[in-house]
């Protein structure tokens, strides 16, 4: 192992921050909407809007695709229902048949109470962790946190960030576009 080279390359990564993209601040929510529409029309793909509260109509303007989470939840709930019924059947009717109060070994009504909570349990667990997976949580750090200005996003700041990995991204022209759309400040984010 060439230990010296690997060490030097690590220090190089730390000393030279990677470019994340451009952060633009807008003065109010309506400007954010019109700017988002223009950025969408300009063909950008990897960008996002940040605001202190949900802005009505933003989903439509950004052309956000519906989430696949409901399908994951459905699969979770289905697995819970069938799993519970299969387990009850295997235990009570197949592996070790027992007679309880003169009821048949296997019967649907008796096992619905088991299937019901397990459906809910697996569906809610899928919802919880599915949401984490789809939103990329847990994420202790985000490049935008390096910006002093961005702190106001939880108070009164409206922002759009365009990532450098976007095929349309070009520092000069993108900055120019954001300024034209009414950004009161544009800064380069490095992390």
């Amino acid at each position: 192992m060439a230990s010296t080279t690997s060490t030097s390359s690590t220090t190089q990564e730390v000393s030279e921050p990677r470019l994340f993209g451009l952060l633009a601040e807008f003065s109010e929510a309506s400007n954010l909407i019109s700017a988002a529409a223009a950025i969408r029309d300009a063909g950008y793909k990897r960008w996002d809007c940040y605001s202190p509260f949900p802005v009505h109509g933003m989903d439509r303007v950004m052309r956000l695709k519906p989430t696949v989470l409901p399908w994951m939840v459905f699969a979770g709930g289905f697995a819970g229902a069938t799993g519970a019924l299969a387990l009850a059947w295997f235990c009570n009717a197949y592996a070790y048949p027992l007679i309880f109060s003169g009821k048949p070994y296997w019967s649907l009504p008796a096992n619905i109470p088991v299937a019901f909570p397990l459906t809910i349990l697996l569906a809610s667990i899928t919802t919880f962790f599915g949401l984490w997976a789809l939103t990329g949580l847990p994420r202790p750090h985000h490049p935008l946190f390096t910006s002093e200005r961005f702190r106001r996003v939880t108070d009164d700041g409206f922002f759009i960030a365009i990532e450098a990995t976007d095929p349309c991204y070009h520092t000069a022209t993108t900055t120019e576009l954001l300024r034209r759309l009414g950004a009161i400040a544009v800064e380069e984010i490095k992390d």
């Binding site: 109060s101 003169g102 009821k103 009504p109 008796a110 619905i112 109470p113």
Partner: peptide
């Protein structure tokens, strides 16, 4: 509806 049905079914 099912709660009522199941309890009645079970107690018989």
């Amino acid at each position: 509806g099912f709660a009522q049905y199941m309890l009645i079914w079970y107690a018989n």
